[in-house]
Design a protein around this nucleic acid. Structure first.
Lengths: 233, 233
DNA sequence: CGTGAGCTTGACTAGGTTCAAACGGGGTGG
DNA sequence: CCACCCCGTTTGAACCTAGTCAAGCTCACG
């Protein structure tokens, strides 16, 4: 039991790491593995909030869509990330697979039932919510107070940090999301994203191959740009 | 014990309502009441995250300040609201009193010690975090995908909803925050806030007295404006 | 009654959006 | 196998929303 867990990219995630290799089966046996193709949804805004998910492979985006078509992406979800935390009867966000995605899905009731045997589990779930909150606050600052170039520089460093964990790469990585996804994450348009990429390329801070592969040439300067870019020195 | 609690505006808050009038003393006896004057801080970004707070009276703002002076307000805090939820060793936000403020302050350790006697308390604390997260997601959408007029209309309806709970007013209320605070909350400038107010006034959707007292004349239309305002019908 | 902090208004500017056209690469069908 | 097409991206140009700078106003307060 829990055989698959050994090779799962989420094995060391906040949730699964509560269990050791002997008792991980307790968690795995109540999990429903799900597989979702690129472009379709793990969960929908109006779904009832019975289930929670832990991403095993692939990348997805937590998003909200307004009636007039405006979209805002709240977060990108990587293996080991937890989805489905929500107050109220419906998630108020959707989660769309950007690549093929596999995940473990649990009835929240089943997770809660394990709290008795593993009290640490409850603390972890709480901790996960708190971390998500912290990340969300960061994003509020970015959306409210950073200009386009700063946003893109910040985004690249953020993705770099996220992907390192699971790829073990040195300094280039493949973006799983389109320019349009990036735009909807940062509250700007595709064109602005594209222009910002071009500018950073011209400045020698990044290199792009085939639109998707990014290499960060100078993370230090990039961090400065993410912090402040514009007329006032 | 818990005498003050009877008249406290936070008596029915998510935290305090776990206790009935008989046992609220268990919570109150471990509380440290604090009083903060307008303009000073309940907590600072770099403070260690030992304490949590529940606002009793007044209004404060959760904010983050960048090194170059840019400020972003994450949330306005009203009586009954909970502050101090944080991952990591330091809050990464500050909380500034917009009016004179009183609050109950607890050592998180003391709250956790009560979990044994009141298991519901732990669930509530989690629930609070989850609600804050939901509110924060709403704001991300506003910051990322709404224009200035939509932001202001949304803001007015939001404040209206917040203040009703504790004032019992019909349709006017006094803003506790300056134009500059509103600007920093919505990711725009003071001038833009001012112009948006003037426009909504000209349209007959709101009335202003002495800059601080707002009356919403037509909430329905205001809600439409908050949803969509601009060229595309 | 004078002062100043906060608010409003105006004129100009700039950063980002919009609209439009062209490019490029991967996949499909002839 | 290659031409074609399509989707996502890039780039350009015009436009417009919000920012900036500056002046004048209001009102609470000393």
């Amino acid at each position: 039991m829990g055989l698959d867990c050994q090779n799962c990219k989420a094995r060391n995630s906040q949730l699964c790491s509560v269990f050791n290799d002997e008792n991980i089966g307790d968690l795995f046996s109540i999990a429903h593995p799900v597989k979702v193709v690129k472009g379709s949804y793990l969960l929908h805004e109006e779904d009832s909030t019975k289930y929670v998910y832990n991403l095993s492979s692939g990348v997805s985006a937590v998003e909200r869509l307004a009636s007039d078509g405006r979209r805002q992406i709240m977060a990108f979800v990587y293996p080991g990330d937890f989805i489905g935390i929500s107050s109220g009867p419906a998630y108020s966000i959707s989660d769309r697979a950007l690549t093929g995605v596999t995940a473990c899905k649990w009835h929240m009731r089943d997770i809660e039932a394990l709290y008795v045997k593993y009290p640490e589990l409850e603390h972890r779930v709480h901790e996960i919510a708190t971390r998500v909150l912290a990340a969300t606050m960061d994003q509020i600052f970015v959306l409210g107070r950073k200009n386009a170039i700063e946003k893109i520089a910040y985004f690249l460093l953020y993705i770099d940090k996220r992907q390192v964990k699971y790829d073990g790469h040195i300094d280039d990585f493949t973006l799983p999301m389109t320019r349009s996804d990036i735009a909807d994450y940062l509250g700007i348009t595709v064109e602005t994203v594209s222009r910002a990429f071009s500018l950073l390329k011209k400045k020698g801070l990044i290199e792009l191959s085939q639109n998707w592969v990014v290499r960060l040439m100078d993370k230090e300067t990039l961090a400065e740009v993410a912090d402040h870019f514009g007329p006032n020195p």
